[in-house]
Write a protein that binds this DNA or RNA. Sequence first.
DNA 1: AGGGCTCCTCGTACAGTGTTCGAGTTGACT
DNA 2: AGTCAACTCGAACACTGTACGAGGAGCCCT
Lengths: 241, 241
Amino acid sequence: MAETKKAKKKPESVWTRPARAKREQPSLGREQIVDAALELLDAEGLDGLSMRRLGTRLNSGATSVYWHVTNKDELLELALDRVMGEVRVPAPDGGGWRDAVAGYARSLRTMIHRHPWTVPLFGVQPMIGPNATRVLEEVIVAFDGAGLTGMDLENAMSLIADYVIGAAGSEASWQNTRDAATGEDWLETLAPYLAEIADRHPRLTAHIRDVWARETADVLEQRFDYGLSCVLAGIEAHRPR
Amino acid sequence: MAETKKAKKKPESVWTRPARAKREQPSLGREQIVDAALELLDAEGLDGLSMRRLGTRLNSGATSVYWHVTNKDELLELALDRVMGEVRVPAPDGGGWRDAVAGYARSLRTMIHRHPWTVPLFGVQPMIGPNATRVLEEVIVAFDGAGLTGMDLENAMSLIADYVIGAAGSEASWQNTRDAATGEDWLETLAPYLAEIADRHPRLTAHIRDVWARETADVLEQRFDYGLSCVLAGIEAHRPR
DNA sequence: AGGGCTCCTCGTACAGTGTTCGAGTTGACT
DNA sequence: AGTCAACTCGAACACTGTACGAGGAGCCCT
């Protein structure tokens, strides 16, 4: 493809004619575009994806992407649905609905951990991509056995999703500030401020002293499981019988 | 932008940085700046706030703001803490801890409804502004009577906050797309797509037909209360006794 | 063989963004 | 009167998303 076309001879020499840009992939496609976008997003977050950087990563002009995708928003929709493909929902065979739903929740959480840039994207548009709908379908099936229908089912599903997104999102952004500065640095710059508010907020400072600096991954794991089992217990307690 | 730098920068926030010595009556002040920023944010969301527009709204040069605020991020921190001042936490007098915590949750939710731009801001930096800390202190007090300490208390507080932010956030962004196009328009453009996935996802389409088009404010209210009482029941069930 | 026609690429340009810099203004204190 | 700090702000830089239109490649139908 990169070689000179010989069908027509034009009165030009090889030297005056600009060499055809060598394209390893003859054309751009949605798949490759989303692939490249995902690399940028996973590596540097939402701000790391710009149309120009995407273009250069694809060895193509900056605005060529706009033929395959009308918008940056649309591109993000595609990327979001792509990573929704990583979410697994166990079928409720054997184990009750609680296990299946818990499996879904945990899978959604690890997906968010892998792709933290998804968090501000949830819900900006109704998620109706193929993978999102597949997940929804499977979640409905997972809830079989809980005896929920109509609005009750909808409420329970929303509760699970809202909790997971809220929890995983706050975990992710917390990780972010942890990466930016080591926890000790933070504690160092924070110490005088903490001392200042110590008498205004006695309970809070006591709590902080009690709890901080053991925010390891284990603790986050435990916290998520605690919240999840609370939510499941609540759904269990409120379901019609 | 370009704020996702991984370079180690000294961790600072508006609250830890010493306030600048101020003069008698400078023409610009943090209060007025945050006031104007809030007007823009509430009127047009996160994208509606740009430093230049903020400048013109303040009848000042575009870059004058940078004397009083080092960053746009810092400005957003200030704005976020300002609206955190609207959150009320009932003292647990009389009614048990459940009522107090529920009151906090509902107050946080209405705050988010009033200022939907806060959602993507939660947790990007540790929230240590005066109003945020005041709320945290009061929440700890509200949990008195639940008999939670240390990590248990922390987990319960995180659970409440994560649920409320997740739920109110998804409500807010849903409202957004509702405003963009009337629900009927949406259903109209969506109908063929729904028909297309009907046999691939039978349960989902049945559920949608069952549930949709009654997404009134009442339903959202009910859903939030359902989720909240689930969470509270879960905390109740898991607390040490 | 040539004329359209559709798919596709891409350089250029526009209007905007956050932020830096340095020159200029003001007002209070020595 | 002079100094100095507190402030304001225009200009500029390096970005951003996107519209537009000029082209090129391959195909089908005369």
